[in-house]
């Protein structure tokens, strides 16, 4: 007897969640960012972001089906970070990295923020 550890299970599960998102299947919240709507799964948002954890862990917010973020949040950067949550890939480029850092700080995604800071430092 033994334990068969499926090494790619976490990635397979996350890929399926991203497929559900792309088909708006079982998405249970719409995140409104400066006029753009993003459909997502609360469980993924809460698992990846301290900000969403603090919002949805309040019982009165648990059933929210829409949430508007602070207008200072850049929708392009939010989209990048949402893709990161569902793929583990963080697309950084010189033009957006500072705004992405600010958005990651806002969403309380500290490890991503640290990566943005290291990216900025490596560029100078």
């Amino acid at each position: 007897d033994g334990c068969f550890q499926f090494t790619r299970h976490a990635g397979d599960v996350l890929l399926n969640f991203n497929r559900l998102r792309s088909r708006s299947m079982l998405t249970d919240v719409t995140v409104q960012v400066d006029g753009r709507d993003f459909h997502a799964h609360k469980a993924i948002l809460v698992a990846c972001s301290g900000f969403f954890y603090s919002v949805f862990m309040h019982p009165e917010n648990a059933n929210l089906s829409a949430i508007s973020l602070d207008p200072k949040v850049d929708p392009e950067c939010f989209s990048l970070l949402l893709d990161f949550m569902y793929t583990s890939c963080l697309n950084l480029n010189d033009s957006l990295v500072l705004a992405t850092l600010n958005t990651a700080v806002y969403l309380q995604m500290e490890h991503v923020a640290d990566t943005c800071r290291r990216f900025i430092k490596s560029r100078h």
Partner: peptide, 21 residues
């Protein structure tokens, strides 16, 4: 989950949800 007798299964672990039906 690194037990003494853990066998690493490298293949897919679950079904793949299609991009569309």
């Amino acid at each position: 989950y690194e037990g003494v007798n853990t066998i690493k299964e490298m293949g897919r672990s679950i079904h793949e949800i299609p991009r569309q039906d």
